[in-house]
């Protein structure tokens, strides 16, 4: 097990992502953040906090993608997680999806499907804390906290103080 990001580095990475979001979108007027539960939701809140410090408040919500997963049959059924779309919706907005780890890309594909149920954003962007490679779909992130080269047998664990007690990103050897 190796720690690849500590609490300070996570904070700085999220702050940098916040700056990049403002820069890329020329401000925040049209931006909506949607975190993908569980940890993406907390990261979305944290980025929103940075954004409001830098440039003012931004609508932030959550988007559960469980019902759109293509691997449902491979797992026991899991409880649905909250979807909370901010007031004002996503129609015509620049939606930034926030997740902890970008890996195969399947979660993001499901998120795009889930988003399609709710409305038609002007653009959809993706922010992730960690991109570990090994994509199985033509999906890329617009904002990346850290690129971490991994082997496919390794696993990446993101710990956040909101539910794990402290912040860190670790790589574990595969079983």
């Amino acid at each position: 097990m190796a720690t690849v990001l500590d609490a300070g580095e996570i904070g700085r990475a999220l702050k940098r992502i916040a700056h990049e979001i403002i820069e890329h979108n020329h401000g925040l007027e049209n931006v909506v953040l949607l975190g993908i539960p569980t940890r993406g939701a907390f990261l979305g809140e944290r980025i929103a906090d940075f954004l409001s410090e830098i440039a003012g408040p931004v609508p932030v919500g959550t988007l559960d993608i469980t019902l759109h997963r293509d691997d449902l049959r491979l797992r026991p059924p899991r409880p649905l997680l909250p979807t909370n779309i901010p007031m004002g919706g996503i129609e015509g907005k620049d939606v930034v999806l926030v997740d902890d780890v970008l890996f195969s890309g399947r979660t993001i594909r499901a998120a795009l499907d889930a988003l399609g149920e709710i409305g038609r954003p002007r653009t959809v962007q993706l922010a992730v804390l960690v991109d570990r490679g090994h994509r199985e779909l033509p999906i890329r992130a617009d904002y990346v906290g850290k690129n971490i080269p991994t082997s496919s047998t390794e696993s990446v664990r993101v710990h956040l103080s909101e539910i794990d007690g402290s912040d860190s990103v670790e790589i574990m050897a595969g079983a």
């Binding site: 691997d71 449902l72 491979l74 797992r75 059924p77 899991r78 649905l80 890996f103």
Partner: peptide
């Protein structure tokens, strides 16, 4: 229906 059919009756973790 989701609880009964929305998953496999597998016990172990699959995938990441």
């Amino acid at each position: 229906l989701y609880q009964l059919l929305g998953g496999a009756a597998l016990t172990g973790e699959v995938g990441a």
